[in-house]
Amino acid sequence: MGQEELKRMLDFFKGLADENRLKMLGLLANQEYSVDELATLLNLKPPTVSHHLTKLKALELVEMQAEGNTHFYHLNISTLSAVNKLLLTQERMASLVDDIEGNEWEKRVIRDLFDGARLKTVPTNTKKRAVVLKWFASQFEYGVRYQEAEVNEIIKRHHPDWAFWRRELVGARLLAREKGVYWRIPEEGSKS
């Protein structure tokens, strides 16, 4: 989940993190009410109700309709549905920790398999090998063309079997090769 989506989700839940606002939404889900009617039903002062309604309007959860000098509020069902589809899915909730779980696990794999900048052993586990390949790919800059000898030299700094890792990097589509020249391929979703 991106920072903007995370901020939107946090704003949404902060806006709902009030008992009176939740009660207002419950009432407005059934019918329209004026500020005075909501104040009476919730045993609040009208300015307090107006304050809460302003927060709910900012989230686009309620809409207002004027009839003369009286403003009537109702639940905005389309926003509620959109929020449900955008934020409150199992996939979205799981994506809250994608970066945390992935990064921490990858860091641990690197710590376990490397002694400083030297790879101690070639992992047989496919997921761990993918982490090592990603790490090797990070040793190459985007937009730079490398001669094969340069690629070999960079890999040799970290493991003696440079030919194996060079082939693996190309096979994993982390490096591209054409006529003895190599370059780093941007990862999906990367802006590089």
Rank of each mutant, 00 (worst) to 15 (best):
W165I: 00
E67L: 13
R166I: 00
R108Y: 15
G143D: 11
D18A: 03
L42C: 02
T126P: 09
T79S: 08
V181P: 01
D98W: 06
E60I: 13
E37F: 00
A82K: 11
K55I: 13
T79L: 02
F136L: 02
N84Y: 10
E67N: 08
L119H: 12
A137I: 01
V122R: 11
V35I: 10
L53I: 05
K134S: 07
P186A: 07
V49K: 01
G189P: 01
A172Y: 12
G143R: 11
W135I: 05
L56Y: 03
R8H: 12
W105R: 11
L6S: 12
G171V: 10
L59G: 04
N84A: 12
V83I: 15
Y33Q: 08
S81G: 11
S138C: 05
N152F: 14
R92M: 15
S192W: 08
L16A: 02
L61M: 08
S95N: 11
L87M: 11
I77F: 03
V62S: 00
I100S: 09
S138P: 09
I100G: 11
L87T: 09
S34G: 01
K128V: 00
N76H: 14
A94Q: 04
M64V: 15
W165L: 01
R129D: 00
L22H: 15
F114L: 06
T48N: 09
N20W: 11
L10K: 12
F13T: 07
F136T: 01
A58Y: 05
V83T: 14
D161P: 00
S34K: 02
L88Y: 09
N76I: 07
R118Q: 13
Y142E: 04
P46A: 07
R184F: 09
L87S: 12
K55G: 04
L53Q: 02
W135D: 02
K191R: 15
V181Q: 08
T79G: 04
D98L: 12
E187D: 14
W162Y: 06
H52Q: 05
D18N: 06
S81L: 15
V97D: 15
L80A: 14
L86F: 06
T79Y: 03
R177C: 07
T54Q: 05
E187H: 06
L41Y: 09
L96A: 10
L27T: 02
N20V: 10
G68Y: 03
E60T: 13
S192M: 15
G15C: 14
N152K: 14
R166L: 05
K128E: 07
F13S: 12
T124Q: 14
L86N: 10
G180F: 03
H51S: 14
Q65N: 10
G143N: 06
T70Y: 04
H51D: 12
E60Y: 14
R167I: 01
E19P: 00
V151I: 12
E4Y: 10
G26E: 04
N76G: 10
E32S: 07
R8K: 08
E4S: 13
F136C: 00
A94K: 11
V83E: 15
E67K: 14
D18Y: 07
K179R: 15
L59E: 09
A130L: 03
I77W: 04
N125P: 04
H158D: 00
L96M: 11
R167M: 04
